[in-house]
Amino acid sequence: MYKKSLPLVLAALVAFSAPAPAAESVAPPKQHWHHQGVFGTYDKASLQRGFQVYKQVCSACHGMKLLSYRNLAGLGYNEDEIKAIAAEYTVVDGPNDDGDMFERAARPADRFKAPFANDKAARAANGGALPPDLSLVVKARHNHEDYIFALLTGYQNPPAGEEGLPGMSWNKYFAGHWISMAPPLVEGAVSYADGTDASVEQMAKDVTQFLAWAGEPHMEERKKMGIKVMLFMFVFAGIMLAAKRKVWAAVH
């Protein structure tokens, strides 16, 4: 999406900076995203559904350590809803006045609860593979949203004759194709609160948008301010051009 909203940057510079994608990867097909483009905003209903997918599926293995429950306000939840969501989790706090650590219900200010105590525990539970933190995953992959969506929907039977290690799956869009993550989304894995049909594609689309929001929570504010700034700059440039023309009129 970032490269698409690029009418203002010299095309040559983009060619300059375009990274060579990692070897053996298949370019993911372009998707349309509600939040792309100069006026694009997040689809809040989709973000909430995406959060539900993260909560019920992804969060079993993947943490989002840069997010706090209070950030969910960006999805359109109100204070009470956020308190209720946080309270579903138990976190360790302390030490208390007796010097002991204790458990309590999570509060909006707490970070998302991590699925594992540390990276080693995560690897031990996942056959040696480390499930990456998802806070920035959309920004940290080439082709951004398109790649995440393609990966989640790109599980296929391996080509005839190819044999992977046990526990590995074949994915069309993963570099090298053999991925440690088993297909995470199956038809009806969640039952959406708003009644939307939970097809694999729908869930992938929703969770991708949620992850895009998680990486760039101030995007809407940025674009809104950007439009005002651009309007100001266009007027400013016009005034400067008029002033320059008037000053130089006698010289021409």
């Binding site: 970032y2 490269k3 909203s5 690029l6 203002l8 940057v9 510079l13 983009v14 900076s17 990274p19 100069v38 920004k139 940290a140 992959r141 080439h142 951004h144 940025r222 674009k223 301010m225 950007g226 439009i227 700034v229 651009m230 700059m233 266009f234 400013f236 440039a237 400067m240 051009l241 002033a243 320059k244």
Partner: peptide, 24 residues
Amino acid sequence: FALVVFLTVFLGTVFFAPLALTEF
């Protein structure tokens, strides 16, 4: 005038394509 045009392109990038020149 030239500076304002240059800054317009710069700010356009900042607000609408801030990652265009950055590696993932």
